[in-house]
């Protein structure tokens, strides 16, 4: 454990060197990241305009603020471990990783952070430009900004833990594509990525509030934009911490079982 900081530094350098090799891929990823909120924005602004300027209290400028903040939060919490892990298993590259005196999760954490830091160079200016172009209605108070920081970090940690846990399905199922697809469809609806939760039919909104998806994206966004009361904010951060604890335990249990299974059938 003592040498973990050194390991992270080395992994940062490696990932950095690896990623800057593919500037084209980085640029495409950035375009994809920016295009998504623009599309939602365009759709919802049109809907708002057709309904006399607002949908359930959301005007075009509110939508702009919501989807731009969602873009930043999404960037901060995104992972690709579900594909990567399947690749490790299918290509057999998990085996050498298991024989290193360090848990493979550390590499993925370092990779993930490096990618995000590197891409902030694009994401933050893009958010600023979009906010100007679409006249986003950002009214942020000091307390929401202060509460946003832990909420964002917890959202990222939670998403990482959940998607790592789901990725472990690859230990038992050879093709996890179907599971990934299902997860992303549910995520799209229940996290608030496609629309603010308030605009969903109320049973779905209630369900979403009790599931972890909203805590990974919509919650920090709404917290930042001042849609929540301090009590709701505290309650939400508590829910994030609780979900995180559950999934960290699940991840550990399933990892141990999965590795045992993997090393029983032919690593």
């Amino acid at each position: 454990m003592r040498h973990l900081p050194q390991l992270y530094r080395a992994q940062f350098r490696t990932t950095f060197a690896d990623q800057v090799q593919y500037r084209g891929a980085l640029a495409i990823w950035a375009i994809n990241l920016i295009l998504e909120p623009v599309i939602y924005l365009a759709v919802w602004s049109t809907v708002a305009a057709s309904q006399g300027g607002a949908v359930d209290g959301f005007g075009a400028r509110d939508f702009a603020a919501y989807f731009i903040a969602a873009m930043v939060v999404n960037h901060a919490s995104v992972t690709w471990i579900m594909w990567e892990f399947e690749f490790w298993i299918r290509q057999g590259t998990l085996s050498p990783r298991l024989l290193r005196p360090v848990h493979p999760i550390h590499q993925t954490i370092a990779d993930n952070l490096t990618f995000k830091i590197l891409n902030l160079i694009v994401v933050l200016p893009a958010a600023a430009v979009l906010a100007l172009v679409f006249h986003a209605n950002f009214t942020i108070s000091p307390w929401t900004l202060a509460a946003f920081v832990p909420a964002l970090l917890l959202a990222a940690a939670l998403r990482f833990a959940i998607e790592w846990t789901l990725a472990l399905a690859a230990f038992w199922i050879t093709r996890v594509g179907a599971i990934n697809q299902l997860y992303f469809v549910v995520f799209l609806f229940l996290s608030g990525q496609m629309a603010p939760l308030a605009l969903l039919p109320s049973p779905i909104a209630t369900l979403a509030a009790w599931l972890p998806f909203y805590r990974m994206l919509g919650f920090p966004v709404e917290l930042l934009l001042g849609h929540l009361t301090p009590t709701e904010a505290l309650w939400g951060i508590g829910a994030q911490a609780a979900w995180l604890a559950i999934f960290v335990v699940a991840l550990n249990v399933l990892w141990a079982r999965g590795v045992r299974q993997y090393s029983a059938v032919g690593a």
Binding site: R13, T14, L99
Partner: peptide, 28 residues
């Protein structure tokens, strides 16, 4: 150490020396 001919432990896209640096960190 286990060396299996076809499995690569080195990172494909970066210089060999950088991969070694990473191994240095992994093995402390």
């Amino acid at each position: 150490t286990l060396v299996m001919g076809q499995r690569n432990q080195l990172v494909w896209d970066i210089p060999v020396a950088d991969s070694y640096e990473l191994n240095r960190a992994i093995y402390a």
